[in-house]
Design a binder for these strands. Sequence first.
DNA 1: GTTTAAGATATATATTTTATACACCTTTAA
DNA 2: TTAAAGGTGTATAAAATATATATCTTAAAC
Lengths: 137, 137
Amino acid sequence: MKLTMYTDYSLRVLMYLGTRQPDEKVQIDEISEYYNISRNHLTKVVHNLAKLDYIHTVRGRGGGIMLKYKPEELNVGQIVRNTEDNFYIAECFRPDNECVLTPICGLQYVLNDALNNYINTLEQYTLQDILPKALMR
Amino acid sequence: MKLTMYTDYSLRVLMYLGTRQPDEKVQIDEISEYYNISRNHLTKVVHNLAKLDYIHTVRGRGGGIMLKYKPEELNVGQIVRNTEDNFYIAECFRPDNECVLTPICGLQYVLNDALNNYINTLEQYTLQDILPKALMR
DNA sequence: GTTTAAGATATATATTTTATACACCTTTAA
DNA sequence: TTAAAGGTGTATAAAATATATATCTTAAAC
């Protein structure tokens, strides 16, 4: 059971931006070098974060990215829910489910209950809570 | 975020056995046909369940497998914890972790908290609770 | 108005993880 | 001795995930 790198990287980008001044523009290159992640891959993560309305991107010379909200306004649970796309805990959660038990078994209910508690826990935290305790340069 | 088929199949085998009489031997072939899963693959799952002490296997002619404990004595959370081997939620949980944030960021604590609540929820259920409401033949 | 520095996007490739297949071994009751 | 059962190791396939390549678009600076 693990989250995708996509979610992992999304959180890291937001954390990176969260240590900066609210209106400070940061370049993707800087972040990719800091984490040692390919620039192209990170660009996609960043693009997705912009689509999700978490960050503001500015194209062209002098551009960069910045948080659109304050760290204490960004909920970790929401971020994970939005960036993680695969919540098919077991076969019975998939669209192509072929398990013959599905109509009569109680597993789905139980796994759903657990997953809800997982997300609910994450929702008790904001980006501010997980921010590194040092400025990242 | 999902469990491996290994865990999924393990639960299914236990559920299958749980609908039978306590001392009734069931063959792997029967289960693999019921679920449409390869016999060889299921054999490994079964073997693992035996190692984990959940089932009793009897080799040789007239053999088969059966639950070693009553369904109400088997905890779903324990089963998942024991059959699922990959709980590396994010890179910072892996032995080969290279994330530079690790020493200073609060993500691990938060993800751990959530995972604990996930497992704790599952631990509130027994095999009896998820058993199919019909006998499987 | 051309150059340069930034993000955007589509497609292809590689890597890793997960699942399955194949082949053969061991055990034990009939 | 045979047949029916589980056990085991290795190889292969499939799926999911991550990365690389290449090229495009935008906009400030000169």
